[in-house]
Amino acid sequence: MAENKTKATEASVESYIEGIQDSARRKDCETLTKLMSKATKETPKMWGTSIVGFGSYHYKYESGREGDTCLVGFSSRKSDISIYGLNAAPTHDDLIAKLGKHKAGKGCLYIRNLADVDLKVLENLVADAAKAKHHDRC
């Protein structure tokens, strides 16, 4: 069974965010860090080289594959900010309809910039997803 490549590290979240070249994107990532910290009540931590994650979650699939990942997290990518872990929110479908301009992938939400979305809705999505995963592991 292959091991997860993306693991929690001791790398600096601040250094990662400071390294984002685009100043508007950097500001969005600073805001997202505060929003996710508040919503999850977790301290941000780097997962791999490019994911800012909050909390940790042990998963096990029916296939037998298992590992650890962050409850929720985000990464600044070339054209969007990818947000991970929100599908676990029981309120996902209702809230996603109210979120604003975004794209959705299999396990990610893609946002060009935070001005395009309702931050209160995003905060609720993050909080609900983290809570659902906390509940799963208890």
Rank of each mutant, 00 (worst) to 15 (best):
L99T: 13
S63E: 12
Y59V: 00
K133A: 04
I51C: 05
K98G: 04
D136T: 00
G48K: 07
M1H: 07
A127R: 14
V13T: 12
D68F: 08
D116Y: 00
L86Y: 05
G85N: 01
A39I: 10
M46K: 14
K38R: 15
L122M: 06
A97P: 07
K7S: 05
W47A: 07
K98E: 15
A8P: 06
H102N: 11
H92S: 13
C138K: 02
K78H: 00
V72S: 03
G67K: 07
F74S: 13
K101V: 14
E30L: 13
W47P: 01
G53I: 04
D128S: 15
K78S: 07
A129G: 10
A115N: 09
G73Q: 00
T91Y: 07
V126T: 13
H135M: 00
L86I: 03
D68E: 15
L35V: 14
I20Y: 10
G19H: 00
Y57K: 03
S56F: 01
K7C: 03
M46C: 12
G67P: 05
D118I: 11
L35E: 02
S12G: 11
K103A: 13
N4Y: 00
R77H: 07
T91D: 12
I81R: 02
F54Q: 01
K5L: 14
T9F: 04
S12E: 09
H134Q: 11
H92V: 13
I17K: 09
S12C: 05
E3Q: 15
K41M: 06
L122P: 09
I20G: 10
K78E: 04
V13I: 01
A129P: 01
I96V: 15
S75F: 05
E3F: 10
D94W: 02
K103G: 04
K5Y: 03
Y59G: 01
R26M: 04
L35S: 05
F74Q: 08
G67Q: 05
R65A: 15
D118L: 12
R77I: 06
S12T: 12
K133T: 00
E3D: 15
A129I: 10
D80S: 14
S63C: 06
K38A: 14
I83A: 02
V117M: 08
E30Y: 13
H134P: 01
K5F: 09
E62P: 09
A24Q: 12
D22K: 15
E10C: 11
V72Y: 05
T43V: 09
N87R: 10
